[in-house]
């Protein structure tokens, strides 16, 4: 049973946004950089790097213990995978009411490529290690 999470060493992030690109490419249909940036519609990334006066902070879903989005979702699209701790959005069930977007305290839910459903970090469901972690040149992000 793995309850792994992505951690951030705040002092290491340079704000290069490599994680943003990697995330978008991973959630594209081609999964390859050059093709991904030419897809229509463009793939949606699930992490955004913000900066404060002193630090850069890549913000993505924290897979909260008590997830507000899960409470708020009225169509039952959001659930928690108890074995991994992941908060998952089922796009089949999502009705696009954007309630989760409003309640997420850190604002990390996005509207998908088609504009119809909510998407967010899925900890790279198909990957053993999330691609943002792999792509980070300073190892600011780590997974354990």
């Amino acid at each position: 049973m793995s309850m792994k999470k992505i951690y951030l060493n705040l002092h290491k992030c340079l704000g290069c946004k490599s994680c943003e690109i990697a995330c978008g490419v991973e959630h594209s249909s081609s999964k390859e950089l050059f093709s991904a940036i030419n897809e229509f519609p463009l793939p949606i990334k699930r992490v955004s790097v913000f900066s404060t006066v002193s630090h850069c902070i890549p913000v993505r879903c924290l897979h909260c213990e008590d997830a507000l989005c899960l409470f708020a979702c009225k169509s039952g699209a959001i659930s928690k995978d108890e074995s991994t701790g992941r908060i998952i959005i089922d796009s089949e069930k999502c009705i696009g009411c954007w309630t989760c977007i409003m309640v997420c305290p850190i604002g990390t839910i996005y509207i998908d490529e088609t504009g119809k459903t909510a998407v967010k970090c899925d900890l790279c469901a198909e990957k053993e290690i999330p691609v943002c972690v792999l792509s980070c040149p300073t190892s600011a992000l780590f997974y354990k």
Partner: peptide, 26 residues
């Protein structure tokens, strides 16, 4: 990993307002 912006050629540090990078995603 090598910088993907650089790989795509869309980062610029020609002037001092920069560095700038064009984000190829939405």
């Amino acid at each position: 990993p090598q910088c993907r912006f650089g790989e795509l050629g869309i980062c610029c540090s020609i002037c001092n307002m920069g560095p700038c990078r064009i984000k190829p995603l939405k």
